[in-house]
């Protein structure tokens, strides 16, 4: 590919000079042709809208408004960072995302590991238990949110309150799980874990089963107990998988939308305590019709995601992982 030092020739002029590939003699366009439908799709539905978001973020533009868009330079960005209300709200949403990630990533990874260990034993009836655990995986979030809204319902008629009341002999009851700021985010976290932890569990389970049994045999000859085996054999054996699980969970945490959108608009929920960047973007763009500002939020959000992804990739590479 580095043989041409001249101007880039038109494709028609090139063939004679190039060694045809060993694989595809006479099909010079097959490669680009195979790739082009997907690449065009990505260009139109991912790259172009992102470019458009950047462009829109420099304008003052309202959704469906007869007013023409007005160029305002970096004003949307300066506002997001300097306007006390906006920066507070945006900061709160970012904080909620980070809190969610900080809790969910370790908790869900550990839970996935625990569950995988739990179901990895050959016991009678294990198929049934596993099936129960997998079930929520096929639940769409729009439906999950409705069910959990009922479960979290304030007052004694809510299922969670009723169960807690039963086990505490009536001492604990009637907590407003979604409505009180201190438990709103936690409630959403539990619901999200319910819906998706078995995905991670399956991944960890596969890794567990691929740890060579000889390692365990060697460990038990060394008189290592179960816990020592777990720490010294199992965990190192599936380390890369655990990192992968943590990675995808982090990405899920930042994409958090459906469940928050659906739950924080029900009952007397205080939106501020659960708002995520995504729900805020949609709220700004579609309820307040402020497209320009929503676009600026999108751009900042993308920058943050990119930085996180780069840091993660670097960290993984440094540890000789994936």
């Amino acid at each position: 590919m580095t043989t041409q030092t001249q101007k880039i020739p038109s494709p028609a002029a090139a063939p004679a000079k190039r060694q045809s590939s060993a694989i595809l003699t006479g099909h010079r366009f097959a490669g680009p042709l195979f790739a082009s439908p997907a690449l065009i799709g990505l260009a139109i539905f991912l790259v172009a809208p992102f470019v458009l978001a950047v462009v829109l973020s420099f304008y003052r533009v309202q959704l469906n408004s007869p007013r023409p868009a007005r160029f305002i330079g970096f004003e949307q960005y300066t506002r997001l960072f300097t306007d006390p209300d906006l920066s507070a709200a945006f900061g709160q949403a970012l904080l909620n995302n980070f809190t969610f990630a900080l809790i969910v990533v370790p908790v869900q990874t550990v839970l996935a590991l625990g569950l995988a260990v739990l179901v990895n034993r050959k016991l009678r009836g294990m198929v049934v238990f596993r099936t129960f655990i997998f079930m929520p995986l096929v639940f769409p979030l729009a439906l999950t949110a409705v069910i959990w809204r009922l479960i979290y319902s304030r007052g004694d008629e809510g299922l969670l309150n009723a169960i807690l009341g039963l086990f505490s002999g009536g001492a604990l009851s009637s907590h407003d799980w979604l409505g009180s700021p201190s438990t709103a985010l936690g409630s959403i976290i539990v619901m999200s874990i319910w819906q998706s932890v078995s995905f991670q569990m399956i991944i960890v389970l596969a890794a567990l089963q691929s740890v060579p049994t000889e390692l365990y045999e060697a460990a038990s000859l060394d008189r290592a107990n179960k816990w020592q085996q777990f720490i010294n054999v199992t965990v190192p054996g599936i380390r890369n998988t655990l990192i992968f699980v943590a990675l995808i969970t982090t990405i899920f945490s930042f994409r958090l939308f459906d469940q928050v959108y659906l739950l924080s608009r029900s009952g007397s929920v205080d939106r501020g305590s659960t708002e995520t960047v995504m729900t805020q973007i949609i709220n700004t763009g579609f309820d307040n019709n402020n497209v320009g500002q929503a676009a600026a939020m999108t751009v900042i959000f993308m920058l943050i995601i990119t930085v996180i992804a780069i840091i993660q990739r670097a960290a993984v590479r440094q540890r000789g992982g994936v």
Binding site: D176, G179, S180, P181, S268, V269, D270, R271, G272, S273
Partner: peptide
């Protein structure tokens, strides 16, 4: 209103 009602 929702924020005030939830204690803010």
């Amino acid at each position: 209103e929702a924020a005030i009602y939830s204690g803010k």
